[in-house]
Design a binder for these strands. Structure first.
Lengths: 140, 140
DNA sequence: TTCAATACTTACCCGGAAGTTAGTGTCCAG
DNA sequence: CTGGACACTAACTTCCGGGTAAGTATTGAA
């Protein structure tokens, strides 16, 4: 079972909160659904560059089980499935906002450090040109 | 190096925030240091039941490298090392508070569900259907 | 007839996170 | 003189999260 190690006995709230977002794409799925309201499976896949179908579903299933996302299936041909955030998902997303803002400040700090460390401090732009990018990973 | 996969190119702030707390004990270390201000290595180990010395140090090192914790070493015999949060560590802890509160609410929900789901063999106070289940204090 | 699109499912594999165990040097209590 | 406290370090092993690739059923389009 996927949920074998999850829902463990939590020692505090942060444990319980971290647990539901632990997963490479969970927070991005949350963000994507929060921004678009309703998304089909394929839309989500295309909206998260680099995610594999297997992981997308696995994460969506876990988040559904955790009561974060709602799954609506229409028995059509071709099949259509719509995902959206539940009330809990929306509130989780809001609870993550301060962390996101903290991370944004951290990114800015790192970019500034990189700009200083680089040999020629010519371009201290916020989008650091020295930042390594590997194919398949989009910079948003 | 431990930091091989870390500090990857982040797609958004949440990525950058999640990265520094990804690690089984990171958030608990943060919590522990935030509560006590200053803690020695052994105190931290005893304060986090189940952590291995290897993981404790590895996490402390990474957090030090990320600018979250400060490490003060006193060349005494026996050796003494004191850990504390930096300004960034403190602000990260505050940024995590909403998530912690969300998690606490989730724990309460889960506890309530468990209370309903179980056939109430252990501690079913009263079977009054009108009685709201209120777990109150967190089970730490 | 073959291909694309839809939303998955299944099998296999790899790398890294985490666990286990042992060892370091110095001092003091027993 | 043996052991423990202290703060680590190192070697080895296990486990599992995530990636890759192929297969499923259906229909319409080329």
């Amino acid at each position: 079972m996927v949920t074998s190690t999850r829902r463990g006995p939590y020692v505090c709230g942060i444990d319980a909160g971290m647990d539901v977002v632990s997963g490479k794409w969970k927070s991005l799925i949350l963000w994507e659904l929060n921004n678009h309201g309703i998304r089909r499976f394929g839309e989500l896949r295309r909206g998260l560059p680099g995610v594999s179908e297997k992981m997308l579903i696995q994460h969506l299933r876990e988040m559904e089980e955790d009561g974060l996302v709602h799954r609506e299936m229409y028995r059509e041909v071709p099949p259509r499935v719509e995902y959206s955030l539940t009330e809990h998902g929306t509130s989780l997303n809001e609870a993550l906002r301060p962390l996101g803002e903290w991370g944004t400040r951290r990114r800015e700090r790192l970019a500034a450090e990189d700009a200083l460390t680089s040999t020629s401090p010519a371009a201290p732009r916020q989008a650091s040109p020295t930042m390594p990018v590997h194919p398949g990973q989009a910079i948003v």
